[in-house]
């Protein structure tokens, strides 16, 4: 039977370190104790970006936002809100400028002013369930790219959309893809740069933790456009949860045949491997990153030649940042004019 309520417990690294998994366990236990397990579904999600007041939980369909939860808050919340439909004010967030708690996530200015593209599914799916991703139109952009678009058409779309490298340097993504495609040498590689060494920067981690399939789908579309059969996801070893979730996602995509041979009967063959970073800040630089993937010391080298001509194992290679890859699918779905 479908549930009438979904309790989305935040399990990004921030909330997990504030013991959100204990809150989730307490919630599951209490829901069961009250006989509500057929009515209320408990879901663990990725980061909501408001770690300062974690552990967080959002209760749907009313979209009530709870903060700073502890396991001892749970029995009262379950009785009052989940059973009797009375959201608990003392667990809600009061913005500094507001006189009273704001019940709904969508009414809190921090959230309501966001327009989510790369993080379009954050908080709305369980990042460890591929079906949740598919439910929110996941892999439809891939289906479109494979069945309705040529590689050149995909590159043109990305170019015209004006997507630029989200790692910070801002190089035009479509131009980079085109250069790799046009380099007459095989095999070609694509790499996802998830080294994210800048102190206090957690955008890549957020994407991996809340929606890992968005990165995989972006890379699949890139593989089709560029003509690559193998991709590498390079991820900081300091991100154990992100690493775990991307590995789960890759395995699920393989099980569904979305990675491997003849993907969606299109003739596209593509698979991914994961390389853990070795804890060096410099490995976020592309030539150092390639050296690290090859098992060498993470020493950057002078360019040219650029990785587009001479990259991983000396072959044409396209490196994009995590967020850049996560932005690819929406562009393909909506078109560059969007």
């Amino acid at each position: 039977m479908p549930h009438r309520m979904h309790c989305m417990v935040c399990a990004g690294t921030g909330c997990v370190s504030n013991r959100s998994l204990d809150v989730r366990d307490a919630l599951e236990k209490e829901v069961k104790k009250r006989g509500l397990e057929d009515e209320v579904q408990v879901v663990t999600t990725g980061c909501n970006g408001f770690c300062g007041v974690g552990p967080l939980m959002v209760a749907h369909p009313d979209g009530i936002f709870y903060q700073q939860l502890t396991p001892k808050d749970i029995p009262h919340m379950v009785e009052e809100h989940l059973l009797k439909g009375r959201p608990v004010k003392k667990l809600m967030f009061t913005p500094p400028e507001a006189p009273l708690p704001v019940p709904k996530m969508s009414d809190i200015a921090f959230f309501s002013r966001q327009r989510l593209v790369a993080l379009r599914n954050r908080g709305l799916i369980d990042p460890e369930k591929i079906d949740d991703y598919i439910a929110r139109d996941g892999y439809t952009a891939l289906a479109k790219a494979l069945t309705e678009m040529t590689p050149e058409g995909i590159i043109e779309e990305i170019k015209r959309a004006g997507l630029r490298g989200r790692g910070g340097a801002g190089f035009t993504t479509g131009v980079k893809w085109e250069r790799v495609r046009q380099t007459k040498e095989d095999p070609k590689y694509i790499i996802c740069n998830g080294d994210e060494g800048d102190p206090g920067a957690f955008m890549d981690r957020s994407i991996f933790e809340s929606d890992p399939h968005s990165v995989i789908e972006g890379m699949l579309i890139g593989a089709r456009a560029i003509g690559a059969r193998h991709g590498v996801i390079y991820i900081r070893n300091e991100y154990p949860l992100a690493l775990e979730r991307i590995q789960i996602a890759i395995q699920q995509a393989r099980d569904y045949g979305l990675l491997g041979e003849n993907i969606l009967d299109s003739g596209l063959d593509f698979d991914l491997s994961v390389t853990r970073g070795a804890g060096a800040f410099v490995c976020g630089e592309e030539t150092a990153l390639i050296a690290s993937v090859e098992g060498r010391l993470g020493d950057p080298r002078a360019r040219p030649p650029y990785p587009a001509e001479y990259g991983l194992w000396g072959k044409p290679t396209c490196i994009n940042n995590v967020e850049t890859w996560a932005n690819v699918s929406p562009i393909i779905t909506h078109g560059w004019k969007w």
Binding site: P2, H6, M8, H60, G63, L124, D132, I134, A135
Partner: peptide, 13 residues
């Protein structure tokens, strides 16, 4: 996608 439509709309309120 079809099977999960209800869950999606519920989470969107």
């Amino acid at each position: 996608r079809e099977d999960a439509r209800r869950a999606v709309s519920l989470r969107e309120g």
